[in-house]
Amino acid sequence: MAAGALAEGTLQAKLAALHAERVRSWSADDLADNIGQRQRLAARFRPGQTLQPGQAITPFSLTDTAGGLLHLANLVANGPAVLVFFRFAGCPACNIAIPHYRDTLAPVLASLGVPLVAVSPQVPERLRDIHTRHALPFAVASDLDNVVARRLGILFSYDEKAREASRRKGQFIGDVTGTATWELPMPAAIVLDQHCRLRFIDASPDWLVRTESGPIIQAVRQALDHPDPA
């Protein structure tokens, strides 16, 4: 869909504007590398590869930017919880998506008493920047070793073409994240209920396509209204 056809103020419209600016300002080679990697990831992705709604996830802990642990059991102790997965603190698209969730998702969840956590594999000390820069009222936490992303089936690794492109620029994503690997999570939003069951998952292999707040809020309301679905 063309950027002009997107509803003003939506997350997707903001990300489309980012892409349009890159088309205007990036070199042809850099733009081709970026588009090519996203297209290859999208071509390989199969929705069935992710954990499916109704399935439970085994207990896990995340490490917040202060070094504390966020345990799954505590997050869902009083009802559903929402996790939004992003790539890393310096990712331009993430710096559009996360503040968008701050403004459009976090206030609704807070009014419902539902915790929201933004999750990245980046080491905790490097995630502090995105937390403070956007004055986020919710937790930002590290999924160390991509444990949760792997369980959810949303993990990907740079293919050889993408690695070659990164090497030409003198970049290694493992240095940026502090993980020493080529792995990143796909941008994703999940809703977990108090039984640690997945009630909603939306993952995009293309990091310029991300979940709007509306479907997340709808899934949360359904989980609150029907805590024990058949």
Score class of each variant (00 low, 15 high):
Met1Trp: 04
Ala3Asn: 14
Ala5Gln: 14
Leu6Phe: 05
Gly9Gln: 12
Ala13Ile: 04
Leu18His: 06
Arg22Asp: 13
Asp30Asn: 14
Leu31Asn: 08
Asn34Gln: 12
Arg38Tyr: 10
Arg40Asp: 05
Arg40Met: 03
Arg44Val: 05
Arg44Ile: 02
Gly48Trp: 14
Thr50Ala: 00
Thr50Met: 10
Leu51Arg: 13
Leu62Ala: 04
Leu62Cys: 05
Thr63Ile: 14
Thr65Asp: 09
Gly67Leu: 11
Leu72Met: 13
Leu75Gln: 00
Leu75Phe: 10
Pro80Met: 06
Val82Tyr: 01
Leu83Glu: 02
Val84Glu: 12
Phe88Gly: 09
Gly90Tyr: 11
Ala93Lys: 03
Cys94Val: 02
Ala97Ser: 13
Ile98Met: 07
Pro99Ser: 07
Leu105Phe: 09
Pro107His: 04
Val108His: 15
Ser111Tyr: 12
Ser111Met: 12
Ala118Gly: 15
Val123Pro: 12
Pro124Cys: 13
Glu125Ala: 10
Arg126Lys: 15
Arg128Trp: 01
Ile130Gln: 04
Thr132Ala: 14
His134Gln: 03
Ala139Trp: 09
Ala141Asp: 10
Ser142Arg: 08
Ser142Gly: 02
Asn146Phe: 14
Asn146Arg: 08
Arg151Met: 12
Gly153Pro: 03
Phe156Gln: 08
Tyr158Ile: 04
Lys161Thr: 03
Ala162Asp: 11
Ala165Ile: 08
Lys169Pro: 05
Lys169Tyr: 08
Gln171Ser: 14
Phe172Ala: 07
Asp175Thr: 07
Val176Ile: 14
Val176Glu: 12
Val176Lys: 13
Gly178Ala: 02
Thr179Ile: 03
Thr179Arg: 06
Glu183Phe: 09
Leu184Met: 07
Pro187Met: 00
Ala188Arg: 08
Ala188Thr: 15
Ala189Asn: 09
Val191Thr: 05
Val191Asp: 00
Leu192Gly: 04
Leu192Gln: 08
His195Ile: 00
Leu198Asn: 03
Arg199Thr: 00
Trp207Pro: 14
Leu208Glu: 01
Glu212Pro: 15
Pro215His: 04
Ile216Ser: 02
Gln218Ile: 09
Gln218Gly: 02
Ala219Phe: 09
Arg221Val: 09
Gln222Tyr: 07
Ala223Phe: 01
Ala223Ile: 11
Pro227Phe: 06
Pro227His: 00
Pro227Asn: 01
Ala230Met: 01
